[in-house]
Amino acid sequence: MVSETSLPEILRARGLRLTAQRQLVLEAVHELGHATPEQLHAAVREVAAGVNITTIYRTLELLEDLGLVTHTHLSHGSPTYHPVSEDQHAHMVCRQCGAVSEVEPELLAPLAEELRRQRGFEVDIGHLALFGTCGECG
């Protein structure tokens, strides 16, 4: 698990410096759990009003390159980011209410293994989203 406190060391090792914006974006990802760049922008602007959406996108790209965050596509819109420190999981997205819940990788392991065996395809479970209707809406 990579903690927020290790961000300065990770950046220094890559010859980069810690900026307030980088720290704020990483903190917002941890705080919100699953969030789009727009949601992260709104959260960061509550603390630092001058941070623009372009900075959010660039910072998310850097944080993903550093292995601190990852993203998945839970809709036709913007990707959703979450900390890498979380266990790898797939997502279930309700088409009616928009609720997002997590699926343990063990549940999908037989499917992933069968795809690997039959087709040589390695499933990236962390980027997998299943769409349907949740129990509340069904």
Rank of each mutant, 00 (worst) to 15 (best):
E122S: 00
G98Y: 09
G33V: 06
E9I: 08
L32R: 00
G98R: 01
T59I: 05
T36S: 15
E61I: 11
C134Y: 04
P37C: 07
L130C: 04
P37S: 13
C134K: 07
S85A: 15
R14V: 03
A43G: 04
E86K: 11
L111D: 00
T59S: 13
H91S: 15
R58L: 15
V47A: 15
E61T: 14
L60Q: 10
L24R: 12
H91M: 11
Y57D: 13
L26C: 02
L18I: 08
G120C: 05
L128Y: 02
A28S: 06
A90Q: 07
D65S: 13
E114V: 02
H41N: 12
P105G: 05
T59D: 06
D124K: 02
E104G: 13
E106Y: 01
C94P: 05
A48G: 05
R22S: 13
L66C: 09
L60F: 04
L11G: 05
A48H: 02
L60G: 09
A109F: 04
G33E: 02
L18Y: 09
V29I: 08
A28V: 01
A35L: 06
E61P: 00
V47W: 09
C97G: 12
T80H: 11
H82Q: 12
H41M: 05
G126V: 01
L108N: 03
L68W: 06
R17H: 10
Q118E: 07
H76E: 09
L26D: 01
V51R: 02
L32N: 01
I56Y: 07
E102V: 11
Y81H: 11
E102P: 04
P8W: 01
H89S: 14
T55F: 06
Y81W: 14
Y81I: 05
Q39K: 13
V25D: 01
A35K: 09
V103A: 12
I53D: 13
C134T: 04
L130Y: 09
R17C: 04
A42S: 13
A49T: 10
A42P: 01
T36I: 04
L40E: 08
A43F: 04
L111A: 12
T70L: 14
L62T: 10
